[in-house]
């Protein structure tokens, strides 16, 4: 699976300042979130269910408008969804009536690239996720893990400068999940695309990320969601069994499962 020269290597930084979101109906999903992400960085977001992780990601994607605050990707304010920010959903969101090849070609075709170039890019990314033999299949004919590979290839083929992933491996079995984690890590090394990765799994976050954003609160706790702490993962190798790895895991788990003392 050759992922060399996968993309032009577009990458962007992210600046979020004073971000608040109140949904229609008055649900205060998050308040005063500040977060700066460097170009090429891999950031994981963890936190109890309902603390606003998806909301944060959907605002970055442009699916939701912020109620207050600044959200910039690559120095440009986010005003709506766009192909510079690829989103990978937990439920894949593949077009069921398009084959694997057509799903992956979808983005490049929208850019009105020459046909030959669309085909070349498509083949390259299908190969990168190891699905060349399945290029003619439809999503419903594939396992969950394979569908998520298609979804990843589909956004990468668009050469995004920011990759947004909302619990992308949450519905997969443990073995498939481990495979895809390894593959995503390799893809990130090759493309240097900035990644924001929401997950329930602290181990997954520590394994993949340069920094882990721990969120807390949430509308169901009566307070808007907010960033509790950002934990850098300064581990040379990510051996999940090593004491150093588990020390970071423990630190984050502590932050996720306890309520911050009232300020």
């Amino acid at each position: 699976m050759d992922t060399q020269h996968l993309a032009a290597g577009r990458t962007a930084d992210v600046r979020i300042a004073g971000l608040s979101k109140v949904y229609a109906g008055g649900v205060a999903a998050m308040a005063d979130v500040d977060l700066t992400i460097a170009s090429g960085e891999f950031v994981a977001v963890v936190g109890a269910s309902g603390c606003g992780k998806s909301t944060l990601l959907r605002i970055l994607a442009g699916f939701e408008r912020p109620s207050a605050g600044v959200v910039e990707v690559g120095g440009t304010p986010v005003t709506g969804p766009g192909p510079d920010r690829g989103v990978v959903f937990q439920d894949y969101g593949l077009f069921p009536w398009l084959s694997v090849r057509e799903n992956v070609a979808y983005g490049p075709a929208r850019k009105k690239l020459p046909k030959a170039e669309v085909a070349a890019v498509t083949d390259r990314f299908i190969a990168a996720v190891g699905l060349t033999r399945f290029a003619g299949k439809y999503p419903a004919q594939l396992s969950g893990g394979m569908q998520q590979r298609v979804a990843i290839a589909r956004v990468l083929a668009n050469d995004p400068s920011l990759l947004l992933m909302d619990e992308p491996f949450g519905a997969l079995d443990a073995l498939t999940r481990a495979d895809l984690q390894t593959e995503l890590k390799r893809i990130h090394v090759d493309t240097r695309t900035t990644v924001v990765f929401v997950t329930h799994s602290i181990e997954e976050a520590v394994y993949l990320a340069d920094r882990v954003v721990v969120m807390t609160g949430g509308a169901s706790h009566g307070v808007p969601g907010s960033v509790r702490r950002i934990v850098p993962v300064d581990l040379a190798d990510r051996d999940v069994t090593s004491p150093a790895f588990n020390a970071v895991k423990r630190e984050i788990a502590e932050l996720v499962h306890t309520v911050p003392a009232a300020a």
Partner: peptide, 26 residues
């Protein structure tokens, strides 16, 4: 979800009607 997918992949508003709504409603 499919409408979101189309928009984040760079589909215009009218394009979404043609490429997602029509086939999904077929």
């Amino acid at each position: 979800r499919l409408l979101e997918a189309a928009r984040m992949l760079g589909t215009s508003g009218v394009g979404t009607l043609l490429r997602v709504v029509l086939p999904a409603a077929a």
